[in-house]
Design a protein around this nucleic acid. Sequence first.
DNA 1: CGTAATAGTATCGATTCCAAACTATCGTGT
DNA 2: ACACGATAGTTTGGAATCGATACTATTACG
Lengths: 195, 195
Amino acid sequence: MSERQASRREVAELVGRIGRIAYSFGGRSGLTPAQWTALRFFARANRFSRTVSAFAEFHSTTRGTASQTVTGLVRRDYLTRRRSKRDGRSARLDVTDKALAILAHDPLDDLERAAGVLSARARSDLVSSLACVLGELAERRGRRPFGMCPSCRHLETEECAVERPRYSCRLVGESLGADETQQICVDFSPIQPGG
Amino acid sequence: MSERQASRREVAELVGRIGRIAYSFGGRSGLTPAQWTALRFFARANRFSRTVSAFAEFHSTTRGTASQTVTGLVRRDYLTRRRSKRDGRSARLDVTDKALAILAHDPLDDLERAAGVLSARARSDLVSSLACVLGELAERRGRRPFGMCPSCRHLETEECAVERPRYSCRLVGESLGADETQQICVDFSPIQPGG
DNA sequence: CGTAATAGTATCGATTCCAAACTATCGTGT
DNA sequence: ACACGATAGTTTGGAATCGATACTATTACG
């Protein structure tokens, strides 16, 4: 085995192990790993993406399983369900204050803190490399990469002279608040292929 | 939220997403993600680490669950169980030819190939950054990082003038073949903390 | 020889998981 | 207006996972 291939395998092994340690721990919250993933998703997703189907995509599971996970969280008052007025089939899930409270003690914060041992430069390189790998893997598996507006080809930025820039999405054809450009989106499509 | 914290969160989100996509796909093998993880582990672990307990540590699960997963793989002839002669409580699991055959088409290979889009330099940096984060995260969670001899403080290298170097492990007090220094070990302890 | 620790298994109920069938709504084309 | 297929989401069933707990057997320590 060549050096090149060895380092590829190392990437896969390390990501797998970190992901596993991060995923498998729910703390004493009474929430399962899947429920934690769902809460994080609905807290971070923009208003077009807070649906059962988008979460199923995000979590790489079926809509049926995602539906069950969401139902459990709604029943426990971590999410509220609101039927869409535009599309009678669709419903939007929003996190409750109870969810925000528990998310303040997210066990995944351990991973964030662990990333803090890297220098800012190393962390920046790590993020771009991971984004690149994720984009490539998502493409190979036929999955959506998810991501935020700043690197999305659907974002339209209207520079105004005096005011702040105005953002909108070419895909859904709606204007976006500046904060919404920092939320994750199911329709994200990277400007440069692969990250 | 500062830039520093934002990039930490991005690391966590990206690792989580990549890990999830990589983990959740079993292909048409009939094996579950947990079973794939077990097969990979027993194929990559050294002879001191191919036990139910070590796999439970590796997979961040309980010994009970790990026992069930292993039992299923033994029943399907992917693993063989051999009781230890030194320790009557312990048993060693070895992968069968059937397991090696299916591992040749490991769905996780997609992730390795995705890592191939990075330059060798970027990949090398990625590996060391991830190893650093993993070491730190494992410490925070009180988990073993697992790793290989070259960066383990238990490795003893005896340099011989004409012959190849001889390796041994200070912890278990046994000599190691050169190939065994490239297998993952439950007793791995990094030379530099967090590295 | 007795006690504590360790390796592993067995069992429980809750959850996850996928697949498949199902309802309801939307979009398109005629 | 109507049929058709696509989409959003739920439901059901069976297998597997999961954590917790209790359990057996063996080893280590004193």
